[in-house]
């Protein structure tokens, strides 16, 4: 299975810009399926970005984050070739992790 995480991270020497897109239903628990059954809430609660042993960005999410969530931020202190580790955990105990090289 391919990773649920897509990430683009590019450094301009000083600042690294990061964009991530994650495949996740982000079900609110408010929607019914075609049989009228409520689809239970299923959403990412925490998404973390680490670089050189340090958290550079931590997202805490509720159900109002869109399906297949997207986030963009920038940080300093990394250079091209450094590893950026991305990991998420959801409310049902699901998780995924990937590592991207900063370009």
């Amino acid at each position: 299975m391919a990773s649920s995480i897509r990430v683009r991270s590019t450094s301009n020497g000083d600042i690294t810009e990061v964009q991530a897109l994650i495949q996740h239903p982000m079900d609110t628990g408010l929607v019914k399926d075609s049989k009228g059954e409520v689809i239970p809430a299923h959403f990412i609660q925490q998404l973390k970005f680490e670089c050189n042993g340090k958290d550079v960005f931590v997202a805490d999410w509720g159900t109002a984050v869109s399906k297949d969530p997207y986030v963009k931020f920038s940080f300093k202190g990394a250079k091209k070739g450094d590893d950026l580790k991305i990991s998420w955990t959801d409310n049902k105990g699901g998780s995924d992790t990937t590592t991207a090289k900063i370009a």
Partner: peptide
């Protein structure tokens, strides 16, 4: 925060030292 969503808080981001104070995301309303 989205005021009239079923739950107002949508997302909260921690910005450590060295991370720029800017975030883009996509939310449900």
């Amino acid at each position: 925060f989205v005021a009239e969503n079923p739950n107002a808080l949508a997302a909260s981001y921690r910005i450590p030292d060295g991370t720029l104070p800017a975030v883009a995301n996509r939310l449900k309303m």
